[in-house]
Design a protein around this nucleic acid. Sequence first.
DNA 1: GATATACCTTACCGATTGGTAAGTGTCAAG
DNA 2: CTTGACACTTACCAATCGGTAAGGTATATC
Lengths: 198, 198
Amino acid sequence: MAVNTREQFLDAAETLFAERGFYGVSIAAIGTELGLTKQALLHHFGSKEKLYGEVLGRISDRFDAITTQTSAASDPTEAFVAYFIELYGASLEEPHQTRLLMRELLDNRRRADTAGTWYLKPFLEHLIRLLQAIPSWRTASEMEALAMIYQFLGALNYYAISAPTLTGIFGDDAYAELDQAFPSQLDQLMRSALSARG
Amino acid sequence: MAVNTREQFLDAAETLFAERGFYGVSIAAIGTELGLTKQALLHHFGSKEKLYGEVLGRISDRFDAITTQTSAASDPTEAFVAYFIELYGASLEEPHQTRLLMRELLDNRRRADTAGTWYLKPFLEHLIRLLQAIPSWRTASEMEALAMIYQFLGALNYYAISAPTLTGIFGDDAYAELDQAFPSQLDQLMRSALSARG
DNA sequence: GATATACCTTACCGATTGGTAAGTGTCAAG
DNA sequence: CTTGACACTTACCAATCGGTAAGGTATATC
């Protein structure tokens, strides 16, 4: 029960922070989610900030796992696209994760001095290297590459957080159709944009 | 001073809500931003929720203005691209606006029952019509069109909220280079993706 | 069988939250 | 000279916030 409780707290916290934001969730609310009091939470994590930090750390680890595991691919274009497919899969498997990272992106001015850039920097640098491995992009500067990467990243992440809104607007059936059309169109978007340079 | 104070409250609230989120800002903080007390704010708006609603309403009006004003363009592809250029300009002129809307997208499950979709539906439907006006996209279903639109929307909005993070990671000079590369690459992305169909 | 440790509770704490009540001062209309 | 609307204040309020202190209970250790 011991280690398990900690993990359960992290799961509950990740979900709630993703849905309501850091200030929108009280530690008491996270506690009652497991049928416990907020002091049980404080016993394990010390403070709300530390809990939040551990939630972010766990997500960071997941990204590292994706980066190290998706390295194998012969063609550089395929390797690049494969990485984004992996990211897309991760956003489906861990739907709260993308929302929480988006919030972090919005709030980062608050913690710009402290944790700063944490997970994002090595992640973006890896993507830049993947893109520059493609022959027609070898002459691109780091920032030119990043500008293109950011378009794909934006397309993917923005969509990932919009599901409830889009179902609200268009209904479940229409959203299912949209959800089916999205990944192939993202694939098409990436390939056409990547090959447009040359 | 009377009407002006109301407007000043709305400006301050928009900035603060965008930067810290609804729960991250107290009405007292918004009050002191104008050198007044929170009761002055409550006198004008009645409650924090109502103030927030008015902030959103103002943004919605701005989007309506963009939609009605950017209708004139002969070539449908140019009209479509021009709309996104207009959106990009708006995100530069009103930097808080994009951040606040992104938060609204993240929080909308909270108010999914009430305000629901408010500004987004007519906005997206307008974009769908613009895209379907392009010959090669005339056969696309609404959701196929929306899948493509959402890629562009995501690319644009995700980038718009990332400025502080990216300068933090790569520094001011590199970000300036990125910022210069971005709009032309977005333009290139859109045109290559739009012409890839058919 | 005493001690220690992990896990969790009840009982508090000061600070802050959104909001109400009851004014105070100003200024224009009658 | 009074009345009343407007813009704002001080003074409160109950509820909630994150966090501390001091236990209680179970299990493992010696």
